[in-house]
């Protein structure tokens, strides 16, 4: 039992749990002082006469941790004391905390969501999908069968993914060096990150560059991503779909004609590439997003694939093969 004057250390999760319970149970809200002096985990360390600045900092961090879990911790002014920071009151409004009562998931839907969560195996996005599944299980729906016959996964290996997804969430401006192909030196970009989308197996950042939306390949970001204090307004909810549509549009507009040697790996795999078709000449007509990336891919096929057009792709593949031959000569 919690007792006053107890000297036993209260585990972090017990303090956070007690804070959530206390703030859920109050309609009028609690002041910071009320929280620190009464809530389990803080009250043990609270000094009635002295300095509580350490404890206050602890409370600030705890608030962030709780909000990160999707718990809507809000502040309201005390009646008649608007603007007085010391008398701000904290609470968790029940309606914004609880899953709406009309939302339920069938066993089939739950199984599908379990599979969707499995897609993420790395980084904070896998922790978030794991937590989402714990919350889903809270509803008590049991699934028909464990999904063992599928192992889908999407990778998030680009080092820039974590800092960008955190900045995206907090709507903070970011700065990084970006190396455009063909340029000798990277240039520094300062941008508002709007969406992170994976297209054709590669992660892209869709960002606002001084009023113009632009797309950046994460693998071309050089060095660390710096997050600035400056924030920006939330983009419309369909921003990520727009980012994917723009990438799809670029992909559709780029067409290459490639001759492949029959029966080879190039013939089999390029033929199976999304959107590929056989042109009148018998060569393959293929779509691609980025000349440099597609040239790398085609160079891997060595003599099995010959680019007919466009000329800049043809030249890019030729130069790559010569480079590799020279590097290994």
């Amino acid at each position: 039992m919690p007792a006053e004057g107890s000297t036993t250390r209260v585990p972090v999760e017990e303090r956070l749990f007690s804070l959530v319970l206390a703030l859920l149970a109050t309609d009028a809200g609690l002041t910071k002082n009320e929280i620190l002096s009464t809530v389990q985990g803080y009250s043990q360390k609270y000094s009635h006469s002295g300095d509580n600045s350490n404890l206050e900092r602890q409370f600030e961090r705890d608030k962030d941790d709780i909000r990160e879990l999707g718990v809507p911790l809000e502040t309201i002014d005390s009646p008649g004391q608007a603007g007085n920071n010391q008398n701000l009151r904290y609470r968790i409004p029940r309606g914004a905390y609880e899953l709406p009562a009309d939302i339920s998931f069938s066993p089939e839907e739950t199984a599908l969501l379990n599979l969707a969560a499995m897609v993420w195996r790395e980084g904070s996005i896998s922790e978030q999908s794991r937590r989402a599944i714990i919350k889903l299980r809270s509803l008590g729906v049991s699934t028909t069968e464990p999904v063992l016959s599928y192992a889908p996964r999407v990778r998030v290996r680009d080092a820039a993914f974590e800092p960008l997804s955190a900045a995206l969430e907090k709507r903070q401006v970011v700065r990084f060096s970006y190396l455009k192909p063909g340029e000798a030196e990277p240039t520094v970009r300062t941008l508002a990150p709007l969406a992170l989308v994976q297209h054709q197996g590669r992660w892209h950042l869709y960002a606002d560059d001084a009023g113009t939306p632009k797309t950046f390949l994460l693998r071309r970001i050089v060095g660390p991503v710096t997050t600035l204090a400056k924030t920006f307004p939330a983009p419309p909810p369909d921003t990520k779909d727009r980012a994917l549509l723009e990438l799809e549009d670029v992909w559709n507009r780029h067409t290459a004609i490639v001759e492949v040697e029959p029966g080879t790996d190039a013939a089999t795999r390029l033929r199976r590439r999304r959107g590929s078709s056989v042109a009148a000449s018998g060569a393959l007509e293929l779509h691609y997003s980025d000349t440099n990336i597609f040239a790398d891919e085609l160079a891997g096929y060595g003599p099995e694939a010959l680019v007919v057009s466009p000329p800049h792709l043809r030249e890019a593949v030729r130069a790559r093969l010569e480079r590799t031959a020279a590097d290994h000569g």
Binding site: P72, L112, V119, A132
Partner: peptide, 24 residues
């Protein structure tokens, strides 16, 4: 005490599942 129902998903938790569904 205090708790009546399951918690909501956070914005990032929901996004992780939605993006996973889209992939599948």
């Amino acid at each position: 005490v205090a708790i009546d129902d399951s918690p909501r998903f956070s914005a990032r938790e929901a996004a992780a599942l939605i993006a996973g569904l889209q992939y599948l």
